[in-house]
């Protein structure tokens, strides 16, 4: 009889241990879930989640430059006008900051490029502001006719990005001027 009781007690102890270990396993599994859920749904969690995603800030008030895309639309419509305005974002002077280049249109029907129709090269100062360097880089496009697209590539493998500018008229590979300015 005593043996039987001892045996029963041992069985009971073993059962208790098993139950206890099951509880611990559940705690171990559920704890991270509970913590995660409480983080997700806690007050202020929305802003924490937002902080982990890319944020955009309107920097327009900090930008100061005069470029306007001009297709010379006045009264008479010309076929080429809707296609004006190519953009290239590239580091033209290899200072580690992306610069911006815009093409521009021309007077129609003469295809003359007076200063308001100049292309625009904006040098990135690295603080969210830009400085226009179109003239210095020789990229005004005064003799290009009506400019449309632009492509960036280092076609001569000199380590400086070059520009290919698409025009109505002769196309231009204008990059040497920008490259020269960069000390090459």
């Amino acid at each position: 009889m005593r043996e039987l009781r001892r045996h029963q007690r041992l069985q009971l102890d073993s059962l208790k241990e098993k139950t206890l270990s099951r509880v611990w396993v559940r705690v171990a599994v559920l704890l991270p879930v509970v913590v995660t859920m409480s983080w997700l749904f806690a007050p202020g969690a929305a802003s924490q989640k937002l902080a982990a995603t890319p944020q955009y800030t309107d920097i327009v008030p900090r930008l100061r430059f005069d470029y306007v895309t001009r297709n010379d639309y006045r009264d008479r419509k010309y076929f080429v006008q809707p296609m004006c305005g190519g953009v290239a974002i590239f580091d033209y002077d290899n200072d580690g900051w992306p610069d911006i280049f815009f093409t521009n249109g021309a007077e129609l029907p003469s295809m003359r490029r007076s200063p308001p129709f100049s292309n625009c090269l904006l040098h990135n100062r690295g603080d969210g502001t830009f400085e226009e360097r179109t003239v210095a880089a020789g990229l005004t496009g005064a003799d290009h006719g009506y400019s449309l697209g632009v492509a960036v590539g280092d076609y001569d493998n000199d380590g400086f990005a070059d520009l290919f500018i698409c025009n109505l008229g002769e196309n231009n590979c204008s990059a040497t001027t920008a490259t020269a300015l960069s000390g090459m």
Binding site: M83, L148, G149, A151, V152, G153, Y155, N157, C166, L168
Partner: peptide
């Protein structure tokens, strides 16, 4: 003709950028 778009890319893998103009 009106050239409207262009792209530099190495179409034959020779390490030199090639140009396509539309």
């Amino acid at each position: 003709t009106i050239s409207v778009g262009a792209a530099w890319f190495d179409y034959d893998g020779d390490g030199l950028p090639d140009l396509i103009v539309s």
